[in-house]
């Protein structure tokens, strides 16, 4: 009886390994069963990223005036009053070069990064309204959007088409093409 049990376990393991190493996207019947299943509520506590189609953008809104106020208090020390960058603080200009806000392919990434990673010494502390306000301020200040009273929320931010998106080329070695990556 016990010998049979052992044999059964060995067979099961062989099947699992075969599927795990050989299988690609197909889900296997036999699994190790490690890890704990989680529901939507638990996932929501961890899941803060923003997709390029706007999925994940939170409630709330903010305008240029709010963004300007936050920028002056929390960002200008490193980024400079006019976004010119303060080299001693390690920040490059946001008007030109590799940090040029005008050149970003998606406004969603700007919101995602500002809310998640800024300010550098106190990341994750901006409210949703403040993050919307900052993105509005940055897009107006760098000339992407010509509207000094711009207010952004989930819907209006997701609708922004960044003018430089067309200049991004995809490395063919990535095995993707520009069409693969467009939001439909």
């Amino acid at each position: 009886m016990s010998a049979y049990k052992t044999m059964k376990i060995i067979t099961l393991t062989t099947v699992t390994f075969g599927v795990a190493f050989g299988g690609l996207y197909a889900s296997a019947q036999e699994k190790f069963g490690f890890g704990r299943s989680v529901d939507k509520d638990e996932i929501a506590r961890y899941d803060s990223d923003i997709h390029t189609d706007g999925t994940g953008l939170p409630e709330g809104s903010g305008n240029v005036a709010l963004g300007r106020e936050i920028f002056e208090y929390q960002c200008a020390l490193c980024h400079g009053e006019n976004l010119e960058g303060v080299p001693e603080m390690g920040a490059r200009t946001l008007h030109d070069g590799r940090r040029d806000i005008k050149k970003l392919p998606y406004a969603t990434s700007l919101f995602d990064f500002v809310r998640r990673a800024m300010p550098l010494t106190d990341p994750g502390t901006l409210s949703n309204d403040e993050a919307y306000g900052l993105v509005a301020f940055l897009l107006v200040e760098t000339g992407v959007i010509d509207d000094p009273d711009l207010t952004l929320d989930a819907k209006s931010l997701a609708a922004i088409k960044m003018p430089n998106r067309k200049n991004f080329i995809i490395d063919p070695a990535s095995r993707f093409t520009a069409e693969d990556l467009e939001d439909k």
Binding site: D49, H51, T52, T108, S109, A117, F168, L181
Partner: peptide, 11 residues
């Protein structure tokens, strides 16, 4: 789809 995160579209 890719997320086009800050580190892949700037730095």
């Amino acid at each position: 789809k890719p997320w086009w995160t800050h580190h892949e579209d700037t730095e």
